[in-house]
């Protein structure tokens, strides 16, 4: 019985991990760029959420909306002011640029907020629970999984059915050809980065509500996002979701056996998958 509870908790956490991976995977899918600063932006979003939390008393979860909007704007600015200027066939400048931004963000947060561990207050939601078949689960973790699922479905739908979404998909396929159709691919990139950061920011705030964070948490977040994308299979939407669930379950089960292990078992599962299924879950299904 205890195992069912453990695995369920892993799945709840995995939904969030999937959401972190979605931001990274989406940027890569559209622009073939990996934003190394993603993990630190996630932590920055949690700090913004912490600052805005007093403004939404009673409905703690609503704070994700303003944070997502701010993150979207930051994403627009980041892409248009910095990353667009180093686009090119050579990927090294883009990777190094975002790495530099990550270092600035991380140490800036240490400077301003200190290195202490914090958590975003959620009021009565923190300890609320419900029971199914004699097992008790937290309301917040379950809600978080539902939010993650909804965001995955919404993005999936939006990319297929809206004009902007289709433009993004077309740009991802061939950024040179879409220019013939009057699309400014740099503008599309701005919006894509905005969306990616907004998604990651939501995940960051929710992670900050479920657990704790420090300015140094960005590295772990980035590695999780990266593992989710590779486990799922690069470019696969629902593969990423499954990747998140696998990592979440592995981590919670691993911590049960070995409380000091941290993310180690998640990393090991990631490498096992990389050896035995290098194209990820999506690659396995396609075969």
């Amino acid at each position: 019985m205890i195992w069912i509870e453990t695995i369920a908790n892993g799945i709840f956490l995995g939904g969030l991990y999937a959401l972190i991976g979605l931001g990274l995977g989406f940027t890569f899918g559209v622009m073939k760029i990996v934003n190394i600063a993603q993990g630190d932006f996630i932590v920055a979003a949690a700090f913004i959420g912490l600052a805005l939390a007093p403004w939404t008393p009673g409905a703690a979860l609503l704070v994700v909306i303003p944070v997502a909007i701010i993150a979207f704007l930051i994403g627009l600015a980041l892409q248009s002011l910095l990353i667009n200027r180093v686009l090119g066939k050579d990927q090294i400048p883009q990777i190094l640029l975002t790495f530099g931004i990550a270092i600035i963000l991380r140490n800036g947060m240490v400077e301003w907020f200190g290195a202490n561990s914090r958590s975003i207050p959620t009021g009565s939601l923190r300890f609320a629970s419900f029971s199914v078949g004699g097992l008790r689960f937290g309301v917040l973790p379950a809600l978080v999984l539902v939010i993650a699922l909804c965001l995955f479905a919404a993005l999936h739908w939006w990319l297929r059915h809206s004009r902007m979404g289709r433009t993004i998909v077309a740009t991802a396929d061939d950024y040179e050809v879409v220019q013939l159709l009057g699309v400014n691919y740099r503008r599309v990139y701005n919006i894509a980065t905005g969306i990616a950061l907004a998604l990651s920011a939501i995940a960051g705030v929710l992670l900050g509500m479920r657990g704790s964070f420090t300015p140094y948490s960005g590295v772990d977040r980035l590695l999780i996002a990266f593992e989710v994308v590779i486990i799922g299979g690069i470019g696969s939407f629902w593969g990423m979701f499954a990747g998140g669930l696998i990592l979440g379950v592995t981590q919670i089960v691993g911590l049960k056996f070995d409380p000091t292990a941290g993310l180690m078992y998640g990393h090991i599962v990631f490498f096992l998958i990389l050896i035995f299924a290098p194209m990820g879950i999506a690659g396995l299904l396609r075969r």
Binding site: F28, I33, V34, I36, Q91, I95, L222, L223, F226, E227, I230, I234, H267, F270, F271, L274
Partner: peptide, 11 residues
Amino acid sequence: HAYFAIGVWVL
């Protein structure tokens, strides 16, 4: 590329 860079980092 970046995935290689982060892969070694995970190790």
